[in-house]
Design a binder for these strands. Structure first.
Length: 214
DNA sequence: GCGACAG
DNA sequence: ATCTTGTCGC
């Protein structure tokens, strides 16, 4: 079988069928470890590099890391990012000695046209609490975010809230936070802030990014 | 038909 | 995402 060898049309159908299975309720116990997930590309985009960095949720110290390389098999199409990056991420996740208690992914959770961004896809496939941490907007509208660190405003699609726009550093472009699976919209930004220190990006993503890139 | 468009 | 050096500001 080639579960990831699908056409864009098939990918959209898969997202629509899986979407109803995600949970937007807080469904987790004590969070001891948090994993940051990021993906990079090499050799003119022909090689996909996925990295996972597991940190202690309390101290934010790195506990374990894993990296996986795979031939790139799907183009970048807005709305279908997970079909390009998830295969490599799953491979990296399998290399971990222990599953993390929470996943922080680069990209959107339900703040997606079909409410099924990469954080929702990964969270569902791994059955782990997951939150999407996007550096830019895919869909949704919002009002200006107060400039102070920690403040946030709702990210809306019509009248439906799909996430929040969170200021992780004063006077610096905010992040787009949305739950992926087993986490509520109101809890998502709090979990992310607990992973932020002095930089715009949470430590989880910073660590994973360094592994997947330079 | 015309824009918008995660990484 | 990636190609790339210095530079403005807290």
């Amino acid at each position: 079988m080639h579960p990831w060898d699908v056409s864009p049309q098939e990918a959209i159908a898969i997202q629509k069928s899986l979407q109803s299975h995600i949970s937007l309720t807080d469904d987790f116990g004590d969070i001891k470890t948090v994993a940051g997930v990021d993906v990079g590309f090499r050799e003119n985009n022909t090689i996909t590099v996925a990295a996972v960095a597991v940190l202690d949720f309390q101290s934010l110290e790195v506990i374990e890391t894993a990296v996986a390389h795979r031939p790139t098999s799907f183009p970048y199409i807005p709305g279908l990012l997970s079909f390009r990056e998830v295969p490599a991420v799953l491979e990296a996740m399998l290399k971990l000695s222990a599953e993390p208690d929470l996943l922080l992914c680069d990209g959107q959770g339900i703040a997606h046209p079909r409410r099924f961004g990469i954080a929702a896809h990964l969270g569902l496939l791994l059955d782990l609490p997951a939150v999407g941490v996007g550096k830019s907007r895919l869909t949704g509208s919002y009002d200006e975010v107060p400039s102070k660190k920690g403040s946030y405003v709702p990210l809306m699609d019509k009248t439906e809230q799909i996430g929040v726009v969170l200021r992780t550093r004063s006077n610096i472009k905010p992040l787009y936070i949305s739950p992926g699976h087993r986490v509520s919209i109101s809890t998502a930004p709090k979990l992310v802030m607990q992973c932020v220190t002095k930089y715009k990006l949470p430590e989880t993503t910073r660590r994973a990014h360094k592994l997947a890139s330079g």
